[in-house]
């Protein structure tokens, strides 16, 4: 019985996340249009929702082309990395008090490890394309990861100190009395910024940067391989949003009249909307601005936050 439940959760996560990501492609365009006083895709099906399906069909029908000058094996494998890494990240997200795929005692580290792995997809895709735009995109991605990975981890250490555990199940449990967003506000801010950078979303989509780099790391990709990159990106958005909700906004915790998974979904949705809003409103910074924001602003804030939190925890415990 318990075995069955775990399979339900696993497949539920797989199907749910993928469907969510696919619909998000349409949903994002509608939202962007809304905020920009347009209509967006509204022709296929009610409200244009059929666009998601049409897009998938289109991508499937396209020629699955590998450039003759590319490093073929790496070129094919690269998109799979992003998909696998992002889906693996969902393994440690608790959907309810007992509903989760795995309660790892290093859950947080596992999540960060998985998101870091996703960067390899971008890096390898950019490198194997054998194209100058792709290469620059890949290089930017690597540099971006190196800068933001550092304080993404550090920003969560405050939460770990307060909850005393790396397990996400425990972290959620320890928020029964109050969300960590209050006690760890700076940690939250830094995590959100790092999360955007991690998922290459606007305004930090420098590896892609259509205006300068054509398509960045995926310039040479087409068909479903491109589609996987795309879905991977939206999975990243959902994963990061779910993580923000879990770590700082009490995860599944909410009033009992609705099931816990609803509250997690609702909170996640809010952050997905926030991601879309950022895309609708923010200009892309210059590359050096991105780096200096990371190293000169975010890192100090994180360190100060860490020291203060540590001090408070020590003081409270003594």
């Amino acid at each position: 019985m318990e075995d069955l439940l775990i399979y339900v959760v696993i497949f539920g996560t797989l199907i749910g996340a993928m469907t969510y990501a696919a619909i998000l492609v349409w949903f994002e365009r509608r939202m962007l249009a809304w905020w920009q006083d347009r209509l967006g895709p509204n022709r296929v099906g009610p409200f244009g929702i059929g666009l998601a399906l049409a897009d998938i069909l289109k991508l499937l029908a396209k020629e699955d082309w590998v450039p003759p000058f590319a490093d073929k094996k790496v070129f094919v494998i690269a998109p799979c990395f992003v998909m696998i890494a992002m889906l693996m990240g969902f393994a440690v997200v608790p959907y309810g008090p007992e509903t989760y795929i795995a309660d790892l005692n290093i859950g947080l580290l596992f999540f960060m490890g998985m998101t870091s792995l996703a960067v390899y997809a971008v890096l390898l895709g950019g490198l194997s394309s054998n194209n100058k735009f792709s290469l620059i995109g890949g290089l930017r991605s690597a540099a971006q990861m190196v800068s933001y990975e550092v304080f993404m981890g550090l920003s969560l250490m405050g939460v770990v100190m307060l909850s005393g555990s790396f397990s996400l199940v425990d972290i959620v449990e320890s928020q029964q009395d109050g969300w960590f967003v209050i006690s760890q506000f700076f940690g939250f801010v830094v995590f959100v910024v790092a999360g955007i950078a991690e998922s290459h979303r606007l305004p930090f989509d420098l590896p892609e940067a259509e205006q300068e780099l054509v398509g960045g790391f995926h310039t040479e990709y087409s068909g479903m391989k491109f589609g996987i990159f795309m879905v991977g990106e939206y999975l990243g958005v959902i994963l990061i949003s779910a993580m923000i909700a879990t770590i700082f906004f009490g995860g599944w915790i909410g009033p009992g009249f609705l099931p816990p998974i609803f509250w997690l979904a609702a909170k996640t949705f809010c952050f997905v909307m926030f991601f879309i809003l950022l895309r609708a409103a923010m200009p892309r910074p210059r590359y050096d601005q991105l780096m200096s924001l990371g190293w000169k602003v975010m890192l100090p804030i994180t360190l100060v936050n860490l020291v203060v939190t540590g001090g408070v925890v020590l003081w409270m415990n003594t």
Binding site: W35, Q36, D37, L39, L277, M282
Partner: peptide
């Protein structure tokens, strides 16, 4: 200023679209 930008864009939630069908 970035937050104000976000607020201003968010305000457009309530303005009708300009698109002609």
């Amino acid at each position: 200023t970035q937050l104000i930008t976000l607020k201003m864009v968010l305000h457009h939630t309530f303005s009708p679209p300009d698109t002609v069908q």
